[in-house]
Design a protein around this nucleic acid. Structure first.
Lengths: 241, 241
DNA sequence: TTGGGGCGTCAGGACTTCGTCAACGGACGC
DNA sequence: GCGTCCGTTGACGAAGTCCTGACGCCCCAA
């Protein structure tokens, strides 16, 4: 009965199933969660300490993070702060402590939800769905952006140029996506580097030069004089439709 | 101790304090919540049944709703569904029922959080802050300032003059931004130098002369007789729209 | 009238940032 | 084990930006 509605609501992001990062130092709990989540078609990554949690968050870009507060290497609130410096990904805190002030601390540090152990798997999954749903922008339809010759389908991860598909590498796509989602707005080099490569790459501006060049070569009519992928020297880049 | 951090994080939306709609049929609880919330500078509306809750949600546009599931006139989940048809306002559910399936039901109906009675006021307030914080970026402050021929979009870092984009260098932007954010007010040379170049450049007034000239050349119709970028001799500069 | 302070303008050189290319090495499939 | 694809580096000239000093104007006070 409690099981029946487990897969009822959508819990996907932009077409694919949501990716979950599970952070806990108890292997058994991680295992149980992983099995349950995979059974519901989530993609699951797991970390057993704070350091690898932050690293995985940066490299894998999960759609939601389940975070145990009792980690061996760092305080759970520190992990939250470390995440909130550069991302707003939903964080659901797990903790054995019922103490009110710990809840308050975690929530004010930027956590989105707080579940005390032992918890019901159904409830956790429901809270997970709620977190993913919240984080998914309402404009799910609005993911097709068009310019004269270019068409981006952000949901399907497809780019067409003059009617034929263009192949992009994962990183190229990621850069493109950030720019297109901020269509018309200036995106700072910092934000691009953080969004695509993670917070520790903030200064690797040559990555951007390489990938902007590749995007222009694949998408611009005259790559040397770009019309859509504009450089704002010293500040960042801008996608102009 | 648990009280001390109550007003620490911001819980405002676009400058004003957040508006909360409290929905519960127990007058005592409504009263207690109202007092606590008002003490923390929230604006509070209260409803004691589902029908008036829906009505108040529509007319008062709260930033967050605290909703008791045990209402006299309708099921709590129906209220959530009624809301979700047209708004994504965060809903925090209160309930005396600990049953897991009820939580799942409410969350899947579109609730954002679920707190069981009896609850700690600190915890509820923390969850409230989390909900407001999450929802805030939706109305990303679109700082657009317009004068006759000029349009500044501070968020997108875009300037248009007579309909066509104007390119500014990073420093030019920085100067412009300080002036425009203080639209109509005099900005002293000192403040400009400090904001743009840093505290150790307070006396380099010739920087200002150079950059004001460049801004005028790019933005004024008659740079020699500026209309918007006004010099207040001996004091500073002023942007007049 | 004269001198000086504050301001606007201009242009060149130092410096930073950008675009481009080529090469390396790991991951993956065949 | 071999080729391919992809991400990462480093190097270089080109382009863009910033600072600086010089000069002239205007206004006001001496």
């Amino acid at each position: 009965m409690t099981e029946s509605r487990a897969d009822a609501p959508r819990h996907e992001t932009a077409g694919r199933m949501a990716r979950v990062l599970v952070v806990d130092d108890e292997p058994q709990l991680v295992r149980a969660l992983t099995i349950n989540l995979r059974a519901r078609k989530y993609e699951v990554d797991a970390a057993h300490d704070g350091a690898s949690a932050l690293h995985l968050a940066a490299t894998r870009h999960p759609d939601v993070i389940i975070l145990d507060l009792g980690l061996p290497d760092m305080d759970g609130v520190e992990v939250i702060s470390g995440l909130r410096g550069w991302t707003r990904v939903p964080v659901i805190v797990l903790s054995a402590r019922h103490a009110s002030d710990e809840k308050v601390e975690a929530l004010d540090a930027g956590a989105d939800d707080y579940v005390t152990k032992p918890f019901g798997m159904d409830e956790l999954l429901a809270r997970l769905r709620a977190a993913v749903r919240r984080a998914t922008p309402a404009d799910e339809e609005d993911v097709v952006v068009e310019t004269g010759a270019l068409t981006f389908d952000l949901a399907a991860k497809k780019v067409r140029r003059d009617g034929s598909d263009v192949r992009l590498t994962p990183t190229e796509w990621h850069v493109l996506e950030v720019l297109v989602r901020n269509s018309g707005r200036l995106v700072t080099q910092r934000q691009l580097l953080q969004d695509v490569w993670g917070p520790s790459y903030e200064t690797e501006t040559n990555y951007l030069r390489v990938y902007m060049a590749q995007l222009r070569r694949k998408l611009e009519k005259d790559p040397a004089h770009p019309r859509h992928f504009i450089t704002e020297s010293g500040m960042g880049y801008r996608f102009e439709r």
